[in-house]
Nucleic acid binder design. Structure first.
Length: 576
RNA sequence: GGUGGGGUAGCUCAGCUGGUUAGAGCGCAGGACUCAUAAUCCUGAGGUCGAGAGUUCAAGUCUCUCUCCCACUACCA
């Protein structure tokens, strides 16, 4: 159970988009697993930097700001704070939660574009785009609606008809109108944009993705290879918008013909990982280069990204094109963990239909530990995972309250009652102690291995199995039976049980930090003794000094009642 | 339409390069225990692995056809 060599690890989770507090699916598929992983790696002694940021550019941000009656800048300021608060409420331990609108990201984005152009990876082209005269803006395809030429559905979007499913071009729509204002005063205009020549990078990208077949999840490589197999096309990296990063020339002036244009949000968003790291360094006095510059030590850094499956193409193809095409020593991702979706009873989360729970609402109705445990134990790793209130109730009541909470309570309160809360000495090792030692010897390394492989469901199952083994141990050791005839032998069971409580708190930290802190507090474990520096199981089971005083913590997890489920189903929706 | 992922016990999901009676948790039934948040521990019942065909000594696992769900399909992010 020796600890691995300390390593510098950079962790990023996909940037949450600015237009509102995210729902549970976003949390479960990027921020939360990145947080759990970061916490585990820190506990294992690694040097971890966990970076995230709000993704603030693009059409939806402008429209949401207009709806709120704010300038885009004011709106983003407000929503950035709201998202930071939501993250804090879920105990996400970002080392820095930045913004893609920061100066550093702006500067980096412009520098990347200039380098790419100098290296021949950027080309200016003219395309046709729908312009809404009434709105005074160009409209992305899906913001144009009209009658579907295929099935005559009257509210078909410019990219796809929701009625017949056919892919469309906004130019094909009959009677097109702006989805923003409803105005029919729309026209097709020529507009010039910069294109990132991903096609020229496809050979290198394919080679790179192939080299990660063994260590990336199937989901990640299969999505990347799908795009490569279809033939990677060049992607436009600018948009006709006001809000965003201006396109400049070598002198820093607006590029000719790019007034009223900014970089496409997906071009600058991943660059914000770097920008936010620089902002972290500026704020803390840290050094960002060992994380990002391969000529400054980043070769020895392990870079791990977490994201939902919709982000994979951008992180395996576009952003790597930006990095590689710059011909500068930037760090590429080493390990990319992609998640499927959390669904709401098998369907989509929907704000308008009152289906689903958002982060701020979730915290209102249950402690963050409950959500963290449930979402990780049911992480959408192999396929989409359905969230249901019934499953949520079952995980919390069974895993947290009954298996862990009750274990802590039964042995600590017994110790307080019979041994005045002091870790008792005495007793001899029996089959029960041999059994639990063997369990830990087998399971703790497996637990760490699952975390290192970023197999979260399995890590949670292993955690639970370890907690459950504690209950089984107590049944075997039965100190309450021994107490009647042999107090020393009862002491053995109580002492071992209390050491298990401490261990269970230590392994619970990355998942349910609040409850873990309460447990470790009750056991009077100093902060410095809470790391995952596990020795022999026999030592772990007799680690607490004899005579050391512990207390019985208050109820760690109160149960979710059926009435709660009824109330929440009415408020947030549920099964049909 | 194309491509990718998925369809395994009532529910949520594991099952690596094909190999003994297909696993876990929840739920359910029976038993044990009484230290504990009516908690815990043990035992058990439950599956023709979406359908059909094929390859093989052997298929949940490989091939083909079909079917259902989800995602992506490049100007939503």
């Amino acid at each position: 159970m020796a600890i691995s060599t300390p390593q510098r690890i950079l962790v990023t989770s996909a940037l949450p988009y600015i237009n509102g507090v995210k729902h549970l699916g976003n949390l479960a598929g990027s921020m939360l697993p990145a947080d759990v992983y970061s916490r585990v790696m820190r506990l294992l002694g690694h040097d971890v930097l966990y970076i995230c940021a709000t993704d603030e550019h693009g059409t939806p941000a402008e429209l949401a700001a207009a709806d709120a009656g704010l300038t885009v800048s004011e709106y983003c300021d407000a929503m950035h704070i709201a998202q930071a608060e939501a993250g804090a409420a879920f105990k996400l331990t970002y080392d820095y939660f930045g913004r893609s609108s920061s100066e550093s990201t702006q500067r980096l984005t412009q520098e990347f574009a200039l380098a790419l152009e100098a290296n021949g990876f950027i080309e200016e082209r003219i395309s046709k785009q729908v312009y809404s005269v009434a709105d005074g803006r160009y409209l992305p395809d899906r913001y144009v609606e009209g009658t579907c030429p295929n099935c005559a559905f009257e509210k078909a979007r410019g990219d796809q008809c929701d009625s017949c499913g056919k892919l469309l071009d906004p130019i094909d729509l009959i009677d097109p109108y702006s989805a923003v204002s409803g105005s029919r005063d729309v026209e097709i205009r020529d507009t010039n944009h910069l294109y990132l020549k991903q096609s020229e990078m496809s050979g290198k990208l394919r080679e790179w993705v192939e080299s990660h077949r063994a260590d990336w999840p199937t989901l990640t490589t299969s999505i990347a290879m799908k795009w490569l197999d279809e033939g990677l096309r060049d992607r436009s990296i600018t948009r006709d918008l006001e809000w965003g990063i201006p396109v400049v020339d070598d002198d820093g002036n607006t590029r000719d013909g790019f007034d009223g244009k900014v970089f496409y949000v997906w071009f600058d968003a991943p660059i914000a990982y770097i920008g936010a790291t620089q902002d972290w360094a500026a704020k803390t006095g840290g050094d960002w280069e060992p994380y990002w510059r391969t000529d400054k030590g980043a070769d020895e850094t392990r870079y791990v990204q977490f994201m939902g499956k919709d982000n994979v193409a951008f992180h395996t193809l576009s952003f790597p094109t930006t990095i590689k095409g710059s011909n500068q020593p930037w760090k590429l991702v080493d390990e990319l963990k992609a998640f499927n979706w959390v669904t709401w009873y098998g369907g989509k989360f929907s704000t308008s239909q009152k289906r689903g729970v958002f982060m701020d609402q979730a915290i209102d109705i249950a402690p963050s530990d409950y959500w963290r445990w449930h979402l990780m134990a049911n992480a959408p790793e192999g396929s989409d995972a359905a969230f249901t209130w019934e499953e949520f109730q079952a995980s919390v009541n069974s895993d947290l309250a009954n298996v862990l909470g009750n274990f802590v309570n039964r042995i600590t309160s017994y110790c307080v009652k019979k041994f005045d809360g002091a870790i008792p000495a005495g007793g001899v090792k029996t089959d029960a102690e041999v059994w639990i030692e063997a369990e830990l010897t087998e399971r703790l390394p497996k637990l760490i291995a699952y975390y290192e492989a970023r197999e979260f469901r399995k890590a949670m199952a292993e955690t639970r199995a370890i907690w459950a083994a504690g209950n089984e141990y107590l049944t075997q050791a039965a100190p309450w039976t021994h107490y009647k005839t042999d107090v020393d032998q009862a002491a053995m069971g109580v002492r071992t049980g209390l050491n298990l409580v401490a261990l269970f708190g230590i392994i619970a930290q990355p998942i349910i930090p609040d409850a873990a802190a309460k447990i470790l507090e009750a056991m009077s474990i100093p902060e410095g003794n809470r790391t995952w520096n596990f020795g022999d199981a026999a030592d772990l089971l007799d680690a607490l000094p004899h005579g050391h005083i512990v207390s019985a913590p208050p109820v760690l997890f109160s149960k979710i009642e059926d009435e709660d489920i009824t109330t929440w189903t009415e408020r947030f929706g549920g099964g049909e």
